[in-house]
Every structure is written in structure tokens, then in C-alpha cells.
Nucleic acid binder design. Structure first.
Lengths: 326, 326
DNA sequence: TTGAAAGCGCTAACAT
DNA sequence: ATGTTAGCGCTTTCAA
């Protein structure tokens, strides 16, 4: 690998001049520039970013910490992050915390060691204080760590509200909300919106808490068996929705005629289910992109007008809810 | 951030001694070591890996190039890679080539700039020659770039064979293979195994090529409508299987009584479908782990006994194929 | 057993 | 407009 010295020698200039050329910075005569560029080409010179990073203390790389990788939400978000990161010249280092504090801590140490420029953190972290004292630009997704830490969240309140509105407009009277773990902000917000709409119509609903990763089929089956009166179901994820649909099939309950079901996420899975699942669509790619955008803004020390961004959601109607004829 | 000099000063030794302590290398008096360790603790010193990397020309990081991120296969593999990488102290840099040559090229340049230690490359690359001339340790997944480049592939031949065997044993006579793009090695291998078994039983089958990312529903529907005699279907992915199942439902064809369906991958999605999809399970996590293991082996210049690893597959029976009694 | 010093490849004062 | 040189934080030879 040729280095800057080799180039300088070949072009008969000093390393400083070469540096000026590759950084497009400072005065350099047009002719000299050509000479240097020629030498660069000939030697196939690619500047060593490690040396650059050592001096400048930036690395053009960011860390992304997620509690899991094998979850559609996260990898769509990741795709959004990567897309913009690539455009802006950042490398993205992927970290699976596995919801394990010590793993997360270990990753943070790596970040420090490698002059990482910024961090995007998915939900479920227990190390909030640590992140803040770190003094590295940071953006959180799906949760608010601290008022000063920029965040990007999906509009979960509206999401819950829209789902409820649809169910009620479609005539549902006896409703259950199969939720994610109720400690999560996202889950709380969806409940908030959902219950607000319920209240507006003088209704209440059952609430059943489930895991997001492996929604407990037993709990769903048991509940459904014991509550034959249920005619409207809101699920906090399409995965939960899929399990619900499959249990409903097993029980011989007709969807959407007897029971209507709404999921959450707009996972590609939705259109593959029978019946296809009506859902609240979160724009996950957009969430990732916006997070990266905010991060880039604070890394470059520019002003971030929108500290806490909310990405809109929308209802996507498929076959698991009744079509209302106008 | 404290640096090695600060520690040296505080412990009243030279930076060389501190270096010896943190690297556990060379002679250092037990007492001095204690002193240094105390200083490290007190100053909260974390060695700067960028400086280290500049000198040693290794970075303890690897690049993973995938043609897509939003594809279950890749992120399960990624999870396997990350798991072992973390254990071995590597950072993993995720690159989405988007099947775009110039993006891939750009990422390769980044790798060079950052002294990356190794590369794991998912299928679909068109830059084989480039990778080899690069002279960076590299492992390929799901394809064989070159005889000298270690690879980890799923046992696709056996996968195809097992699927066919099951279908035939279950009495299928008129079979279709909904394949992925037939340029892919994986697809070719599955066909190889599938057709071999077919031949052994004096049978043939229809072959329909589809995209992996968005399997064309139209093509599937049309084929199914025009071929009512079909009683056995093998799909090259569970996603294709899901679409097939949903079209079969729409056409009112009973699964598994009239048609039996086998997918590929063992995506969690399988058990959520109605009926639950019988499939060939690829151990994707294992594929990722083994790839990282091979990569680590060549990075450390140890001998790699198994240059081309094949990860076993197995048939997972669910509801889309008949249960054979006895 | 320890320290001094050169050097990894680059940037940026400062000097010319 | 260009060159000289001192670092960035670390490792490692060489000398003591």
C-alpha cells in the first residue's frame, strides 16, 4: 500500500502538498495538483483513515445498538440508517446487546476505544446515565432517554387511536388489546391513544400483555376460548396478529365477519396471512433514516431544530377488518 | 480522556512500561504492574485502539457485505456473525450493497482505508476478482467465489433432495418447483438435489423462476390456475411458500389433502401460516457463526482444515404436508 | 526490569 | 504556493 510519502516523492512535492490535494484544502497550484493527482493514480494511493482518525479524533463511523437483530422492526430501521450513513460516508457498526447490560457496556467501551462519532440506540437500554456522561453524540429510537437526547419515535399514540377508531367504526363492541410488554414507552403510548378513543365512545377493553419476540400462543388461545364475545382485536405487533389469526382459525371463528383484527408494524408478513392482516403501518425505514439524519446533524455540530421527531403512522386496510361501503 | 502518557506520569514509569502492562507482554515487575494498574483504574484509562491500529495495521473489525438487509436469511446469519465476532473482540461493520456494484466498490475502498481485518461476503457479488486481488482475508457465504476463498454454504443439494423425497413418499405425482433466480448457486444446488430424487423415481417437474425479494404473486396465481393437476409444490423460500399458500387458499384448494407444500429456510413465519408450512430448515445462525469462525482462523493465520464448510439442513414437518401413519 | 526514542500515516501550524 | 516539522497515542526495538 502506497502512503502519502510515496506520493510526495513521486510527485516531487512535500507530504503537506499531497495532504492539501487530497483534502482539497489550502492553496495549491493547478499544475502541482495535476502532478500530485497523477502520482496518486499511478500508485493507487488510498489515504489511510486510521492515521487521519488518530489525528482528528473522528472516525466517520457510528455504532448502532439494538436489543435484537432478528426482529423485522430493527432490521428495517437498520436499512434506513445504513442508507443515509452510506450517503454521508459513515460506517455503521452493528451491536446486538441481547438485552444484556454487560454486553452493552462492553460495546460502549469499544466505541470509546475507536473514536466512534456517534451512537444510535434502540430501545430497552438500562444504561441511560452512562450514555449521557459519555459525551458522544447520541440519538435514541423508540424511546426518550433524556430530554436533551434527540429521539425518533413512531407516532404510537396516533397509531393506537387509529386502530381503535377503525374497530369502533366497524361496529366492534367487545374489544381486546393484545399488548407488548407494558414497560415499553411504545406500548404505553399505543395504549394511551387506544384508550383515549375508547373513552370517547364510552367503551373499555381487555388488556393482555405479551412478549414481543415470542408472543405466548397459550395465553392468546386461552383468552380467546374464554371470551367468545370478543369481536374486535388490536395487536401491538403483526407477529402477535399472526398468532391471533391462526388461533382464531383453529377456533373456527370467522375473520372479519365475527371478529376483526388489526396488527401493528406493516410487516411484509401481513399480506401473506389468510386473511391478510389490516395493520398500523410504521415507516421503519424512515425512522432509521431520520435517526441517522439527526445524528449527523449533532455530530457536525449543526443546530437540530427538531429534537424529538415523531414519524407518522397510517392504517393499512386489508382483509381482517370489514370493508365499510360508503 | 486519559492517555498512556498520563498513566505513565501518574505511576511514575515510562509509557513503555504501561504498554507492557496493558498488553501483558514483556517483563514487568509485579510491584510496578500493580502501580500501573492502580493508575489505570484511577484515571479510567481506556487504550486508544486507533493509535494501536495505526501501528499494528489491524483494526479488530470486519466488514459484512450483504445484497440486502431486509431479508430474514441475512439477518439471522448476521446474528450468528455478530455473536462470535463479539466473543472474539471484533467489531462488525454492516454493508448493504443493494446489489449495486458501485456501492460495493465504495465499501471495499472504505475497508482498505480502515485497515479492516477481514470480509464476509453474502451472495450476489460481481466483484470476485477485486476481492481476491485485495489480499484481505475473506469468507463467502452461500456461494463459492474461488476455490481458494473459504466458504460456508448450506447443504442445498440435500435440502432439495429431502423436499422431493418427502413429496414423493407422500404420494405426489404432479410436482412444481417454484424456484429462486436460477443464476444463484443455492438455487442451482437445490434443483440438483430435487431433480436427482425426481429422476430416481422416474418423475419430472415443472420449474418456475421467481424473485426472492418480492416473489411475483401473479406468476404463481396464473400457474396454479392453469395447472389444477398439481399435487406437490416445493418452494425455494418460505416467503414464496407463504404466497403459494395464500393463492391456494384463494383458489379453494385444500392443503395438504389436495396439494402439499414445502418451503425453504424455516423462517419463524412458517408456524404462523394457515396451515403451518412444512419446510427445509437452514441453520442460518450457524452459517453466520461458522463463517466468522473461518474468518477468524485465516485472520490469525492459523490453518483452516475445512475450507468449504457445508451446514446441514433438515426437514421440519408441519401442516402443509400429510402425516404418514406407521 | 525499565526507559528513550523512532515510527505507524496523516494533518496543520508555522516558516519560507 | 509550498515545505518543515511537531504531534495524534500507541508499540517495539535497542540500550541501559
Amino acid at each position: 500500500m502506497a502512503n502519502i510519502k510515496d506520493v510526495a516523492k513521486r510527485a516531487n512535492v512535500s507530504v503537506a502538498t499531497v495532504s492539501r490535494v487530497i483534502n482539497n484544502k489550502g492553496y495549491v497550484n493547478e499544475e502541482t495538483r495535476m502532478l500530485v493527482e497523477k502520482a496518486i493514480k499511478e500508485l493507487n494511493f488510498i489515504p489511510n483513515e486510521v492515521a487521519r482518525s488518530l489525528y482528528k479524533k473522528v472516525s466517520k463511523s457510528i455504532g448502532v445498538i439494538f436489543p435484537h437483530l432478528s426482529n423485522p422492526f430493527y432490521y428495517y430501521v437498520l436499512e434506513g440508517i445504513e442508507a443515509l450513513a452510506f450517503e454521508k460516508g459513515y460506517k455503521v457498526i452493528i451491536c446486538n446487546s441481547n438485552e444484556d447490560k454487560s454486553r452493552e457496556e462492553e460495546y460502549i467501551n469499544q466505541f470509546i476505544k475507536y473514536n466512534i462519532d456517534g451512537i444510535i440506540i434502540g430501545s430497552n437500554s438500562s444504561l441511560n446515565a452512562r450514555y449521557i456522561e459519555l459525551n458522544i453524540p447520541i440519538v435514541s429510537i423508540d424511546r426518550i432517554i433524556h430530554d436533551d437526547v434527540p429521539s425518533v419515535t413512531s407516532d404510537n399514540i396516533t397509531g393506537g387511536y387509529l386502530a381503535c377508531k377503525k374497530l369502533i367504526e366497524n361496529g366492534c363492541k367487545s374489544i381486546v388489546h393484545f399488548r407488548g410488554p407494558s414497560i415499553l414507552l411504545t406500548v404505553k403510548d399505543r395504549s394511551l391513544g387506544f384508550n383515549k378513543c375508547l373513552e370517547e365512545h364510552g367503551l373499555t377493553c381487555y388488556q393482555v400483555d405479551l412478549a414481543f419476540i415470542n408472543p405466548e400462543r397459550e395465553i392468546i388461545a386461552t383468552f380467546l376460548k374464554e371470551h367468545e364475545e370478543i369481536d374486535g382485536i388490536f395487536c401491538d405487533s403483526d407477529l402477535i396478529g399472526a398468532v391471533v389469526l391462526s388461533e382464531l382459525n383453529r377456533l373456527g371463528r370467522k375473520v372479519p365477519d365475527e371478529v376483526q383484527v388489526i396488527g401493528y408494524d406493516n410487516n411484509p408478513l401481513c399480506s401473506l396471512l389468510t386473511p391478510a392482516l389490516t395493520t398500523i403501518s410504521q415507516n421503519m425505514f424512515e425512522i432509521g433514516k431520520e435517526a441517522m439524519l439527526s445524528l449527523n446533524t449533532i455530530i457536525e455540530k449543526m443546530e437540530l431544530k427538531d429534537k424529538h421527531k415523531t414519524i407518522p403512522v397510517e392504517l393499512v386496510e386489508r382483509e381482517s377488518t370489514k370493508k365499510l361501503v360508503g
